[in-house]
């Protein structure tokens, strides 16, 4: 798994590549949670290259959602691929997250909602 972090004025963008299972989730969780706590800003997670997610990965998203809620900011999950989406649906998570088609859509929604 590979994680890239970039920050702009409005949001933090995290890009995950590969599989998010019990062996890789902790690393992702540590990076993402520390970013979310250190700078209370909106967060977009680009999932276009995420090929698999297990319950350990799902749990990290729950933790991130809790942190951004406490911060009063927003979390967007962008470009989720079919099979990962199916796992999200099976877990019953889909209605509780802002799932968007692309990073651009997430950033434009952020712009609209802040106006």
């Amino acid at each position: 798994m590979d994680i890239q972090v970039s920050e702009t004025g409005n949001y933090i963008l995290l890009r995950i590549e590969g599989k998010l299972d019990s062996t890789t989730s902790m690393e992702f969780g540590t990076i993402a949670e520390s970013k979310a706590k250190e700078k209370p800003t909106n967060m977009i997670i680009d999932l276009s290259e995420l090929s698999y997610i297990s319950s350990s990965g799902l749990r990290i998203f729950l933790q991130l959602a809790k942190i951004v809620k406490q911060n009063g900011t927003k979390l967007f999950l962008a470009a989720m691929q079919g099979q990962v989406k199916e796992i999200f649906d099976l877990a019953g998570f889909t209605p509780y997250f802002s799932i968007v088609n692309s990073v651009d859509e997430a950033s434009s929604r952020m712009g609209n909602e802040s106006r």
């Binding site: 019990s22 297990s54 319950s55 350990s56 799902l58 749990r59 729950l62 933790q63 959602a65 809790k66 796992i87 099976l90 877990a91 019953g92 998570f93 209605p95 509780y96 997250f97």
Partner: peptide, 20 residues
């Protein structure tokens, strides 16, 4: 399994997914 203020334990979430 859906997001609540209380986050499920790893075992509980894994069991839920195993069943679903």
């Amino acid at each position: 399994a859906a997001p609540h203020d209380e986050i499920p334990t790893e075992t509980s979430l894994a069991t839920t997914m195993l069943k679903r």
